Structures are given as C-alpha cells and as structure tokens.
Amino acid sequence: MNDPKLTPQALWHCALGLLSRRDHSRLELSQKLRQRQFDVELIEQALDKLEQQQWLSDHRFAVVQVRQHIFKKHGPLRIRMELKRKGVNEAYIEQALAEEDPDWFELALVCYQSRFRNRDIPDIKEKAKRMRYLQSRGFNSDQIRYALEAEQD
C-alpha cells in the first residue's frame, strides 16, 4: 500500500462519492472499491463504518430497487433475482416486496398491454412469444395467464 492514492482517506472519499450518486448494496460497493485496488481489510472496515452511520443500508437499497423495478413493470421473480445478484439478504428482499405490495396480476396486465398493441393472438406461436416476454419480465405462470386471458375477455 505504497500508493498514496490508496489511503484509508481516499477509500472513504471514493465510497462516499459512489454513495452520493445512488444507493448501493454492500456487495456492489465492495466490488467497486476492490476494482479500484483498495485493500480488502480497509474496505470492510469502511463498509462497517458506513453501515453504522446509516449511509449504507441493504434494506434501503432493496426498497428503492423494488420501487424502480415496479415502475419498469418488472415482476417479483425478476426483482428477487436482481437483488440476490446484488448481494441483498433474502429477508430484506421479502420485506421490501411486502412494503410495496403491488397487485402483480394487474402489473402483468399493464406490462402486457404496453408491449402488445394488437390484442388478438392469431396462433400458438404468437401466444408463446407473448408468454416468454412476460416470463422474461419476471412474472409467474399464473400472472402471465391472467394477463393473456384478461385481454381475451
């Protein structure tokens, strides 16, 4: 650690700079600081301090991410997968989803309607395409069925 750019103060300023732009999960912030060649032990100490001062919070990060994903019309399966990939604890994910508690069936329908203007499904191939689209957005089979059948009524 002879490099003056890799001091604990530089690490702290870098972490605060990243957090000032947007919330990060602990894992995300750790990875970004490691990419900048900071010492792993110093990173962990800084992250602990940031959590103590409530500048870093996986729960807050999860809540913000859930809201953003719902705004983008993503379903619960995709939201869970994305948050797990970013290192968020399962309990925080479930808590954030419960706090928002959208009607996933209606969100699947809105997502479907915004993507497919022509509501008629001419054949099984087109139906499969539409189902795959909703599946890729993170909706489960019941929610997908609801969206497709609501359009047929």
Rank of each mutant, 00 (worst) to 15 (best):
S57L: 00
S57Q: 02
D58H: 06
D58E: 07
H59S: 15
H59R: 12
H59N: 12
H59I: 03
R60L: 04
F61D: 11
A62W: 03
A62Q: 04
V63P: 03
V64E: 10
V64L: 07
Q65V: 04
V66G: 13
V66C: 09
R67M: 06
Q68W: 00
H69N: 14
H69W: 00
I70S: 11
F71E: 12
F71S: 14
F71K: 15
K72M: 04
K73A: 06
G75F: 01
P76S: 13
P76E: 03
L77T: 09
R78Y: 03
R80V: 00
M81W: 00
M81Y: 05
E82R: 12
L83D: 05
K84S: 13
K84F: 03
K84M: 05
R85P: 04
R85W: 00
R85N: 10
G87D: 03
N89T: 02
E90S: 14
A91Q: 12
Y92N: 15
I93T: 00
E94G: 14
E94L: 09
Q95H: 11
L97C: 09
L97A: 11
A98T: 08
A98K: 10
E99K: 12
E100K: 13
E100V: 14
E100Y: 06
D101F: 07
D101M: 10
P102W: 01
D103H: 08
F105W: 03
L107T: 12
A108F: 01
L109N: 08
L109C: 10
L109K: 13
Y112R: 11
S114D: 07
R115A: 11
F116D: 11
R119A: 09
D120T: 14
D120N: 14
P122Y: 00
D123L: 09
D123N: 15
D123G: 14
K125N: 14
K125A: 15
K125S: 15
E126W: 01
E126V: 11
E126T: 12
E126K: 13
